[in-house]
Design a protein around this nucleic acid. Structure first.
Length: 625
RNA sequence: GGGGACGUAGCUCAGUUGGUUAGAGCGCUGCCCUGUCACGGCAGAGGUCGCGGGUUCGAGCCCCGUCGUCCCCGCCA
C-alpha cells in the first residue's frame, strides 16, 4: 500500500466542529475512517476524530484521483481530507448525526497510514469481550463512549482543582516512593538498589505527608493523588486509584463538609448536573439502623423496625432471638413471588451472621394475621411491594460481643442490620427493572449537560449524597481479642468520649466521617489527633507499647511535638465520582489503562518476570517452592 | 483463600440425549452499484470448540485438572 506524505498540510478544523456555519469553506480535516460506504462511482467516508464524525463525499466525476484512492481505504485508516464543506440537500440531511446538516466534498485525499483489520470496531456501539478491550486498549479508547468518559474525567478533575484553589487550597505533591504507612492494606514494595534488602513502599494514601504539611503551616493542602493498595479487586476497586486528597488546619468537622460539598457540587456541575448543598448527615449508628450499611443507598426504602409488632411468645414460636432486631425489608413493585422465585432469592441472603430470613409473608400471615397487617402498615407497603423479614436466629449463636454500651449498637445487632441491609440491596438490584429506582439515576446521567434551554439536570432526584458521622473508634477483633482502630490510629476521638478510651473503648466515637452516595462510598476523612498526650493514650488503648509506636511512626510522633495545630481532612475517590457521573458499572470504564480483577495490565502484560541481572542488582532471589 | 458465571470462526453467539462433513449474524476478501449514513446485491475465504488428561466404538457436549476474563465473600477506605 502506497502511503501519502503529510507534507506541510495543516489541519484547519476538527470533524465534530463542522456545521452549517462552515458551509462553503475550504477545510482540511484529519482522522480515522469510521466507516466506508462504497456506491461504485460515489464513496462516502465517515471521518472520526475526538470531536466527532463528519461525512466525506468522493465523487468519481469531481475528484477521480481521490476517488480511486478511496477504493482502497479501509476502516481505521488515518487520512487527511482537503475539501469544501457543503450544505446537504434537505433530503439527505441526517438528523441522527451532530454534523448531519453538512458534508465535506473532497478535493484531495491523503492516506497517511493504513491499519490492520481491528479485532473489534470502534464504530460499533455494543462491545463485548472485555479481555480484548483491555488488550487493545488503544482501539477501545477510540470509541466515542470511552472518549466521553476520559473527557468527563478531565472536566471533573479540572473543576475540582479550580474549586479547591479558589477555596485557598494549595496543590502539593508528595512522594510515591515512601515507607510503609500505618493503614491496613498491603503495600506495593519497591526494592532499593542502593540499600540492599530495604524497600520503599508506594503510598496507600498521602495520609502522613498531608498531616506533616499541616504541621508545616501550609494551612490548606490538596492533591489529586495516585494511591496504591495491594488488595483484591472489585468492580469499584483498582490496585492503583486516584484520590482527591485534602487537609486543613483549625477545621471543625462542618468546615471540612462545606469545603467538600462545594467541590463535589462543582464536579457535578462540570458533568451538567445541579447537586444541592449542604448534604444531609446521619450518624453511623443511625445509618446502620435505617439502612443496614454505612454507605446507605437512599434511592430505596429504609429498613423498618418491627420488633414491637411481635410478642415474646410470637418470637419464640418463630425461633427468633428476642434480644436482636426484627426488621422488615421492602422492595417496591416487585409483585408476588412464587415459591420457586423465593428459593432462587435465598442465596442473596447472607445467613452466616446469625440472621434468619422469613420470606413467606403469606404463610406468616396465617399464623399472625394482625402482626403481619401491622408490619405492612409500618413499612408503608403497597400490595405489589415485596416484603421480607430479617431477624436473629434463636438457634444459632454467633461469636460476637453482646455487651450494650453507652446506648450504641452491639456487634450482634450490627450483624443483623447489615444482613438485612445487604439483602435490601441485592433484592433491589435483582428487581431493578420493576421498581425503577436505579434507572432514575441512569436517565439523569444520560440527560446530563442540560435540556434544550441549557438548564442543568437536577441531581436531587437521582443522586443522594450523605455524610455518615460518628463512626466507632475501635473494632473488636474476634481472633486476637484485641481492640483495633477502625481507621488509622491518628483519628481523633470525640472530646467528650476521651475519658472512656481505656475503660470502655467500644463506646468511643471517632471524629471520622464518610461521604456516601447511592450506596457507594465516595470517601472518608477525619479530624486528627494533634496532641501528643492523646496520641499516647490511643496507642495505649490499642495495647501498643511506646517502643512499638516509635518504631512504626517515630518521625510522625516527633513532628507532633513541634507545635502541631488542630487539623483534619478527607480523601474522595475521583474514579468513583467519575464512575457515577459516567453512569458506568465499573471503574475500568473511567480509567484509561485499568487492570483486570487479578491486577494484570493486559496491554503491557504487567506484572512480568525480570532479568536475573536486575534481581542480582537488587540482591533479590526467587524463593523456591 | 472461598463461591459463582463464562470460554465454539476476527467479533457476538447457537449447537438437541454423546453420533455423518460444527452453524448463524456481523466483520473480512473479490466483483457490481452515484445519495448512502448499521448502504445495498452477488460470490468466497475463515475453526487446535481455551489448554491438558480421562471415560467411550465415538466427546464441542460427560468426568478430572489447569489457564484466562467477569461478579461476589474474605481482604481493602
Amino acid at each position: 500500500m502506497e502511503l501519502d506524505l503529510l507534507g506541510n498540510l495543516q489541519r484547519t478544523h476538527s470533524c465534530g466542529e463542522l456545521d452549517l456555519s462552515a458551509a462553503g469553506k475550504d477545510v482540511v480535516v484529519m482522522g480515522w475512517v469510521n466507516r466506508r460506504r462504497d456506491h461504485g462511482n460515489l464513496i462516502f467516508l465517515d471521518l472520526r476524530d475526538r470531536s466527532g464524525i463528519v461525512q466525506i463525499v468522493l465523487d468519481k466525476e469531481l475528484c477521480p484521483l481521490a476517488h480511486a484512492k478511496a477504493e482502497s481505504v479501509r476502516p481505521e485508516y488515518v487520512v487527511a481530507i482537503q475539501g469544501k464543506v457543503r450544505r446537504r440537500d434537505a433530503a439527505s440531511v441526517n438528523p441522527n448525526m451532530a454534523t448531519g446538516q453538512i458534508e465535506v466534498n473532497v478535493g484531495e485525499l491523503k492516506i497517511l497510514n493504513d491499519a490492520r483489520t481491528p479485532p473489534f470496531s470502534p464504530a460499533e456501539d455494543a462491545i463485548g469481550n472485555e479481555e480484548l478491550r483491555l488488550k487493545y486498549r488503544y482501539i477501545d479508547l477510540r470509541r466515542p463512549a470511552m472518549q466521553r468518559n476520559v473527557i468527563l474525567r478531565h472536566k471533573i478533575a479540572l473543576a475540582i482543582r479550580e474549586n479547591l484553589a479558589r477555596q485557598g487550597f494549595l496543590e502539593i505533591e508528595t512522594p510515591y516512593m515512601t515507607r510503609s504507612t500505618p493503614e491496613g492494606a498491603r503495600d506495593y514494595l519497591v526494592p532499593s538498589r542502593v540499600h540492599p534488602g530495604e524497600f520503599y513502599a508506594l503510598p496507600q494514601s498521602p495520609q502522613l505527608f498531608k498531616q506533616i504539611l499541616m504541621i508545616s503551616g501550609l494551612d490548606r493542602y490538596f492533591q489529586i493523588a495516585r494511591c496504591f493498595r495491594d488488595e483484591d479487586l472489585r468492580a469499584d476497586r483498582q490496585p492503583e486509584f486516584t484520590q482527591i486528597d485534602l487537609e486543613m488546619t483549625f477545621p471543625q468537622q462542618e468546615t471540612v463538609f462545606r469545603v467538600v460539598e462545594s467541590f463535589v457540587a462543582a464536579a457535578f456541575h462540570a458533568a451538567g448536573i445541579a447537586l444541592p448543598t449542604p448534604f444531609p448527615q446521619i450518624t453511623y449508628d443511625e445509618s446502620v439502623r435505617r439502612f443496614g450499611s454505612d454507605k446507605p443507598d437512599m434511592r430505596l426504602p429504609e429498613l423498618v423496625d418491627i420488633h414491637a409488632v411481635f410478642s415474646s411468645s410470637d418470637l419464640e414460636t418463630l425461633m427468633v432471638d428476642p434480644s436482636l432486631p426484627v426488621i422488615a425489608v421492602r422492595v417496591p413493585k416487585v409483585g408476588e413471588l412464587s415459591r420457586k422465585e423465593r428459593d432462587e432469592n435465598r442465596p442473596l441472603f447472607d445467613a452466616r451472621k446469625g440472621a434468619k430470613l422469613i420470606d413467606d409473608l403469606k404463610r406468616l400471615e396465617k399464623a399472625f394475621p394482625e402482626a403481619v397487617a401491622k408490619v405492612r402498615e409500618l413499612a408503608g407497603a403497597a400490595p405489589e411491594d415485596l416484603l421480607v423479614i430479617v431477624a436473629g436466629d434463636a438457634t444459632t449463636r454467633i461469636e460476637a460481643s453482646d455487651t450494650k454500651i453507652a446506648g450504641r449498637l452491639t456487634e450482634r445487632e450490627i450483624a443483623i442490620y447489615s444482613s438485612a441491609g445487604s439483602l435490601r440491596i441485592e433484592l433491589a438490584k435483582k428487581y431493578a427493572a420493576r421498581h425503577g429506582a436505579f434507572s432514575i439515576t441512569e436517565r439523569a446521567v444520560q440527560n446530563a449537560g442540560g435540556d434544550e434551554n441549557g438548564n442543568l439536570v437536577q441531581g436531587s432526584e437521582a443522586f443522594f449524597p450523605i455524610w455518615v458521622t460518628d463512626f466507632p473508634m475501635f473494632e473488636h477483633d474476634a481472633e486476637t481479642g484485641q481492640w483495633m482502630p477502625s481507621h488509622h490510629p491518628f483519628t481523633s476521638p470525640h472530646e467528650e468520649d476521651m475519658d472512656r478510651l481505656v475503660s470502655d473503648p467500644s463506646s468511643v466515637r471517632a471524629r471520622y466521617y464518610d461521604l456516601a452516595m447511592n450506596g457507594l462510598e465516595l470517601g472518608s476523612g477525619s479530624i486528627r489527633i494533634y496532641r501528643k498526650d492523646v496520641q499516647t493514650k490511643i496507642f495505649q488503648s490499642l495495647g501498643m507499647s511506646d517502643e512499638e509506636a516509635k518504631e512504626r511512626f517515630g518521625f510522625f510522633l516527633e513532628a507532633l511535638e513541634y507545635g502541631t495545630p488542630p487539623h483534619g481532612g478527607i480523601a474522595l475517590g475521583l474514579d468513583r465520582i467519575v464512575m457515577i457521573l459516567a453512569g458506568a458499572q465499573s471503574l475500568r470504564e473511567v480509567i484509561a489503562f485499568p487492570k483486570t480483577a487479578r491486577a494484570v495490565d493486559l496491554m503491557v502484560d504487567a506484572p512480568s518476570l525480570v532479568s536475573e541481572t536486575q534481581l542480582k542488582e537488587l540482591q533479590l532471589q526467587r524463593r523456591r517452592s
